[in-house]
Design a binder for these strands. Structure first.
Length: 679
DNA sequence: AGCCTTTGACCAGCG
DNA sequence: TCGCTGGTCAAAGGC
């Protein structure tokens, strides 16, 4: 077992890897909407971990992992697109190598752009049951998406993508969002910060803030103790949670009655106390004829749902009208539980979505079987909300830590999960897991109990890029660490960021660069720095835009994005004061998350040495926002990511890496929606 | 009467 | 093959 502390690369349990799988841009031939999903997979470091001294890295890093293991970990997911993986300390679970192809990214593409790109933004997850767009409460990464949003914000420029649009893109994004957010703070902010969205129950949808409010409201206001109360028929707890608030006018969005709960009717057909679970598990079936959707609900003794697992896809509409019936639902599947975010879990080939509420898991089986079709998308968002044990500082820290990059949120989310694996127990050497001896259930319990003690570490991001060159120019300056020339540390004084470069074991053409930490400085001035913002118009229209699936009613991009450059504001380091309101309030009310930003991406010419921006790790970006002093959600840089559509794409983009090496086109990371005709 | 929950038994997968 | 486990069935009962 190697203690990585010496090199500062310890604690691999919370590494997050962003890996693009090729399917991302591949139009789903089957027409399944969920074919392109940002996927998260765990990257695990098995025994030996990153042995810097010996350079034993590759074999230990595993991307993906079996569905079962992720399921077991309650933190995993399986998808085919962008994999947000993480390197974690070896655990008792096997870590099969990722098998899904990885997206190759032209060298000209900024990892930051990728990481902070819209595709990496949290997707509004339609409720697995209602289709209600629910957002990761309190997630700094969250984006409030609602079918009515743009209507509500139409006077603001129609910048808010329609729900459908977002919904269609939902598969494109897969994130876990740690929501270590003080409830009281959330409430306070929700109550005090531009409650615009909350006012209009018809046209307004809650901003992320509002969602947060919903979440926390339900938790701390509606029923501080056992918000879920006694299980009711078909109750999925979470929905009810919010629904209660909704009924009280706090959650105008939900538009469904409490009785409707998740909009579907469920029949309990069994209950069992499963091993490893402290609480009994109830089994529910959708009562709709021919609907095979099931869900498993675990409740604590006080009635609070500790885990919900949805399996299957509804082939019908909700039994009760909902303001937010998602297209997914209409077509087939919905997932995500109101008030929570979800992460896909897979079991036995079925994708399960996990939604964490207060560090509780709600899993939604997303095998998307509809009319014989089986979907295996795995959009995931795991949001941790209202962790009662966490102090505001801790939560804030978590948010702050994760603010730098979207993926970080997932990392943090993973932290939660992985901390369950002992991460919170202290530094864990990559070579072994302190909790190896413990059973998964036990660790789960410990983790759940010790949520408050989880450590928030620097984000670790792994980006796999196909390049002949090992070292990709990310705009920063690095010096090698250790004997192997695969470990680098940012040369900027005091900057803790490090990165590790390796070749993908399964694809020597792919370079896996793992970043840890956040730059505490700006990107070193280079001759190319300005290109990030200046190259927007250089690309031929045909190749400079990546238009994600267009959907009817999609608001047109604002004039300022006519150049097809997505202008995101960098996620600044979040301050305790501004974080919540800003994070939560931005989405629904301003241009931080515009349609164009979401489904349009422009990539810069594949120039050499294009700075990779800060890879989303720079925390000292503090651009202010009209409504908030910070814009924590989205990257501040224009998304200039050259992309090409893999396979059938008409968008053939290729490029060269920073060193002039020709590299393949991005295979994809935008998922499954056919891109043709999107430009 | 219909729908739901409860609960023990049964079944299948897995090691 | 056996035991464990998770998932499901179905009878009984409640609302």
């Amino acid at each position: 077992m190697l203690e990585m502390g010496e090199n500062g690369w310890g604690d691999f349990d919370d590494w997050t890897a962003l890996v693009m799988s090729p399917q991302g841009l591949i139009p789903d031939e089957s027409g399944e909407k969920f074919g392109n999903v940002v996927v998260k997979k765990e990257v695990k470091v098995e025994e030996g971990g990153w042995d810097i001294e010996n350079g034993n890295v590759g074999p230990e890093v595993r991307i993906g992992g079996s569905i079962a293991e992720r399921r077991a970990a309650k933190c995993g997911f399986n998808a085919s697109m962008i994999e947000v993986a993480r390197v974690r300390a070896p655990g008792p679970l096997p870590s099969p190598r990722a098998r899904s192809p990885l997206v190759t990214i032209p060298s000209g593409i900024s990892p930051t752009a990728l990481l902070d790109s819209p595709v990496m933004l949290p997707n509004p997850l339609p409720s697995p049951t209602t289709g209600t767009v629910t957002l990761p409460p309190l997630s700094h990464e969250s984006v409030v998406l609602n079918p009515t949003t743009h209507a509500a914000h139409g006077d603001r420029g129609g910048q808010i993508p329609s729900y459908q649009t977002l919904a269609s893109m939902q598969p494109l994004m897969d994130f876990e969002f740690p929501v270590e957010f003080p409830k009281d703070t959330a409430l306070r902010n929700c109550a005090t910060d531009s409650p615009v969205e909350v006012k209009d129950s018809t046209n307004m949808i809650p901003s992320a803030r509002c969602v947060a409010l919903q979440s926390c409201h339900a938790d701390s206001v509606v029923n501080p103790i056992t918000p879920l109360g006694e299980p009711t028929s078909g109750d999925d707890g979470v929905a009810e949670h919010l629904l209660e608030g909704n009924q009280k006018g706090a959650f105008p969005l939900m538009g469904i009655s409490k009785n409707a709960e998740d909009g579907y009717n469920w029949r309990k057909y069994g209950q069992k106390h499963v091993k490893g679970s402290e609480f009994p598990r109830s089994y529910y079936k959708c009562t709709h004829p021919d609907c095979l959707v099931k869900k498993k609900v675990e409740r604590s003794h006080d009635g609070q749902i500790t885990e919900i697992v949805y399996k299957g896809a509804h082939n019908h509409h909700t039994s009760q009208p909902s303001l937010l019936v998602s297209p997914f639902l209409q077509n087939e599947v919905l997932d995500s539980v109101d008030g929570g975010s979800s992460s896909v879990k897979a079991e036995d080939g079925a994708v399960w979505r996990s939604i964490q509420l207060g560090c509780k898991d709600i899993k939604v089986d997303a095998d998307w079987r509809v009319d014989g079709l089986e979907r295996t998308s795995s959009t995931s968002i795991v949001t941790e909300t209202s962790d009662p044990l966490s102090t505001p500082q801790e939560k804030t820290k978590g948010v702050l830590e994760s603010a730098g990059t979207p993926e970080l949120s997932s990392t943090l989310a993973r932290h939660d999960c992985d901390d369950k694996d002992g991460a919170t127990q202290g530094s864990i050497s990559p070579g072994g897991d302190a909790d190896d001896e413990e059973s998964e259930p036990k660790r789960r319990k410990l983790a759940e109990i010790n949520v408050a003690s989880r450590n928030v570490r620097e984000p670790r991001v792994v980006v796999q890029i196909e390049s002949e060159m090992d070292i990709l120019d990310d705009g920063y300056r690095w010096r090698s660490m250790g004997k192997k020339l695969s470990y680098y540390k940012c040369t900027s004084a005091g900057c803790p960021v490090r990165k590790h470069v390796e070749r993908a074991a399964d694809n020597l053409k792919s370079v896996i660069t793992t970043y840890e930490g956040k730059h505490i400085h700006e990107v070193p001035a280079t001759k190319n720095n300005s290109q990030v913002n200046s190259t927007a118009g250089n690309l031929p229209a045909a190749t400079s835009n990546i238009l994600l699936p267009k959907i009817a009613n999609v608001p047109k991009p604002e004039p300022h994005v006519q150049d097809h450059t997505i202008h995101f504001e960098r996620k600044p380091a979040l301050g305790n004061e501004c974080m919540k309101p800003c994070l939560l309030g931005k989405f629904g009310s301003d241009a931080k998350f515009r349609p164009s930003s979401i489904y349009q991406m422009q990539f810069p010419p594949l120039q050499n040495s294009m700075p990779y921006a800060s890879f989303g790790m720079n925390t000292n970006h503090n651009e202010t926002h009209p409504a908030c002093s910070m814009a924590p959600i989205l990257p501040d840089f224009p998304i200039l990511v050259p992309m090409s559509i893999h396979g059938s794409s008409d968008m053939a983009l290729g490029g060269s890496d920073n060193h002039g090496n020709s590299i393949g086109p991005i295979r994809s990371f935008l998922g499954g929606q056919p891109l043709r005709g999107l430009i």
